[in-house]
Amino acid sequence: MKPADSSPPTNALLEINGVSKHFGGFTALDGVSIDVGKGERFGLIGPNGSGKTTLINCISGALTNDGGSIRFDGEEISRLPAYLRTRRGIARSFQIPRPFGSMSVLENLVVPLEYVAHSGSLHLADTRGEAMEILKGMGLADKADTRSNRLSQVELRKMELARAMAARPRLLISDEAMAGLSSNEISEVLEILFKLNATGISIIMIEHIMQAVMKFSQRLICLDAGRIICEGTPESIVENPDVQRAYLGA
């Protein structure tokens, strides 16, 4: 399954082993195995319906995998509820942004700060100050008091990433954070993700925008019909005939 040029990390943060997921008679994931290393930038591509979102739903806990194991930092997490996985250090953004629409942008970040980062010692924490720091890093500081359902698409995407960061993750899953954005906006979001990665956070990027995911990822896999059809460096992936047939439309 693994081509020679891929280099599975020796210090894996996330170890997915033979994970499968069925919806009735439909097999969405069929024995998927991936390792993601500490601080790695990992790309996940594949055509629509190939199982990318199902896979990250299984990682983040929105769905429970039927078979196989998911280990995070050595601990089996596949039966943990989603909020405990977030507390272990897995955060995600959503393909279609899901803001807490009745709250301000700042409050959106206070939720994970209260429930994850400071869940043990809340009374000591200046969660608003911390939220503001994160917003500054994302270029959203001037929107702090805006109700989040008033944001533009790119602002929403950034807020989703900011909210994920407020959970102080060790692994960030970005689910099509750039879909529908202009090329300037794509570079903005990409820059943010590079910056986050530089602080040591592993990032799994799911993306249809090829130049972005190829530029970003150190290693990629391509899913098709619930299976990994190819794994390797960006260069090897684009040259792989299976990938070209399944995805790039060659």
Binding site: S60, P99, F100, M103, V111, P112, Y115, R163
Partner: peptide, 15 residues
């Protein structure tokens, strides 16, 4: 409130 606004996102924010 997070639950009311979006339960899935709330759960993923550690709620």
């Amino acid at each position: 409130r997070a639950i009311r606004d979006n339960e899935g996102a709330a759960e993923c924010s550690g709620v």
